[in-house]
């Protein structure tokens, strides 16, 4: 279960643990639900995420693709060095808006 802060069409989702296969189903439902409710400005706060596996990467790209249809960009904040390295290697940094700092 994630913490969700919602303001209008803006939402910040803070997953409570690493984004790996065991939790992606619930996170997917949470994200989809937010998008279905009209959220177009979506930020995922990685401050409690230390690790991302392949299923997690797939989920992030799926969220990115959903937002893209609305002309929006997926934002990631609080990203640690390891996750940043992974996203950079896969060149996802050019598609997502990524910050190592926490959301304001």
């Amino acid at each position: 279960m994630s913490d969700v802060t919602r303001t209008g069409n803006k939402a910040v989702v803070t997953p409570s643990r690493n984004i790996t296969a065991g939790m992606t189903d619930s996170l997917r439902k949470e994200l989809k639900s937010l998008l279905d409710e009209g959220v177009t400005d979506l930020t995922i706060d990685f401050s409690r995420v230390e690790m991302l596996d392949s299923v997690g990467i797939g989920l992030l790209i799926a969220a990115h693709n959903s937002l893209l249809k609305e002309g929006a960009v997926l934002r990631l904040t609080g990203v640690n060095q390891d996750v940043m390295g992974l996203l950079s290697t896969m060149r996802l940094t050019s598609h997502f808006s990524i910050h190592s700092s926490h959301p304001s």
Binding site: R28, L31, G58, H64
Partner: peptide, 18 residues
């Protein structure tokens, strides 16, 4: 070319490949 579109979106079945 990297094909992110092939991964699908949140409405589709999960994929763990790029």
């Amino acid at each position: 070319r990297v094909d992110l579109g092939a991964v699908g979106d949140l409405g589709q079945a999960p994929a763990n490949y790029v």
